[in-house]
């Protein structure tokens, strides 16, 4: 399994030429991005010189322990913060501000607008950002609400839904926009374990249906292996690329290869952190 892990010993080294050539066509390229943010008395470097690219229909997971800047990185891709150095391009265009071509699904349950029903929540971005006529927006919203199996809750207000249902609405809202990339920031982290597994299965099912591109942030190795086809491993303080795992979907639960991969990734993530702290 280790041959699937391309370890990057020197994160500042340039990417191989072959790969650089193919990256011109990538859906999303993140090139040597350094991100810093301010707290009232500190300037914190969240990530340093992080590069990766996401292809169409990738299920790309950013994985790392807390403090590796994976959520910050996702926010930068979302356009909520600008890199100090480096660049982020989507479809060849630089990312400057948030936009509906990159729909976010957050961890928090309060991401739905409480004053709108499930249907209105899914319709709203279609109407304001995609400028669809109401009838068309409603039809598309209903289609995606059906996809996430919430047909019965179409006219409910978010406060009457359970956590898992709220996350389903958020996913339907993101997918109905048919964005270039769906950005998911630990969307299942606040759910109970049973619901989380169910949601992971449903997400994979949805992907089989529509083959959307998704970047998924998580700190659970098992979740990363289950969901992704590619994993970017980040090391903490500051976030640097440690390795990239490709062809993750070839790992299989039955023959134990998924368990082996999980162990390999775990060792890789925690091997150094011992003398670091």
């Amino acid at each position: 399994m280790l041959q699937a892990i391309q370890q990057k010993m020197d994160p500042t080294a340039g990417l191989p030429d072959v790969k650089a050539a193919s990256e011109a066509k990538s859906l999303l390229t993140v090139d040597k991005v350094t991100l810093r943010y301010k707290t009232p008395n500190l300037l914190i470097t969240a990530t340093e010189d992080v590069s990766f690219s996401v292809e169409r229909s990738d299920r790309f997971v950013l994985l790392g322990p807390s403090g590796c800047g994976k959520s910050t990185l996702l926010k930068a891709v979302g356009g909520y913060m600008a890199p100090v150095s480096g660049s982020i391009h989507i479809n060849g265009r630089p990312v400057k501000k948030p936009g509906a071509d990159r729909m976010m699904v957050f961890q928090e349950f309060d991401q739905l607008l409480p004053w709108k029903t499930v249907l209105e929540n899914v319709m709203f971005p279609l109407v304001v950002a995609r400028k669809l006529p109401r009838r068309e927006a409603e039809a598309r919203a209903k289609e995606y609400i059906d996809k996430v199996k919430l047909t019965r809750a179409t006219d409910s207000y978010p406060h009457t839904l359970s956590g898992g249902m709220k996350q389903r609405v958020a996913i339907a809202r993101g997918m109905a926009m048919q964005p270039d990339i769906l950005l998911m920031d630990e969307p299942f982290a606040a759910l109970d374990a049973l619901t989380r597994r169910q949601m992971q299965d449903e997400l994979l099912q949805l992907w089989e249906d529509t083959r959307f591109t998704v970047i998924f942030v998580t700190h659970s190795i098992a979740e990363a292996i289950k969901i992704s086809n590619r994993i970017l491993l980040l090391s903490p303080h500051p976030g640097r690329v440690k390795a990239e795992v490709i062809d993750v979907d070839r790992a299989c639960q039955d023959d134990g290869s998924a368990v082996a991969l999980e162990r390999d990734i775990h060792n890789l993530l925690f091997s150094e952190s011992g003398h670091r702290e």
Partner: peptide, 17 residues
């Protein structure tokens, strides 16, 4: 909440809208 603000930004809403 910050999440709702980010959702608004995600929809491309600015200023008065």
């Amino acid at each position: 909440s910050r999440t709702l603000r980010m959702v608004g930004g995600n929809y491309g809403l600015t200023g008065l809208s």
